[in-house]
């Protein structure tokens, strides 16, 4: 009681282009503790998906929490999730709230 759950959304991004096409900033021990989407590149898989927005904060990728991960590690986890051949998509848990 008294604690508001921020709204989070599960977004599935199909691998429809050779790149994911997002830029992220943030990570543990920075002013932005969870990775935030700062750019979505036209023609990338994320753009084609149509459900990701600049400003959204990425909480999880394929069910892996990004909390406590430094920038490089968060970026590596997202890059690996995009590259893995086991799936033809990535699942992001995102929120509009910081």
């Amino acid at each position: 009681p008294g604690v508001l759950e921020p709204t989070s959304t599960l977004v599935r991004v199909a691998r429809t282009a050779s790149t994911l096409g997002i830029a992220i900033e943030g990570g543990a021990n920075t002013r932005q503790p969870l990775p935030r989407i700062v750019t979505i590149q036209k023609g990338g898989s994320a753009y084609n998906c149509g459900q990701l927005r600049v400003g959204q904060v990425i909480l999880e990728v394929n069910g892996i929490s990004l909390r406590g991960r430094e920038h490089q590690e968060a970026a590596r986890l997202i890059a690996e999730a995009f590259k893995t051949k086991e799936r033809d998509h990535i699942e992001f848990l995102v929120t509009e709230f910081n």
Partner: peptide
């Protein structure tokens, strides 16, 4: 605590 104010900005990575 002023700790939050001293945290550095993050780099940006294109994925």
């Amino acid at each position: 605590r002023e700790k939050r104010l001293t945290l550095p900005p993050s780099e940006i990575t294109l994925l």
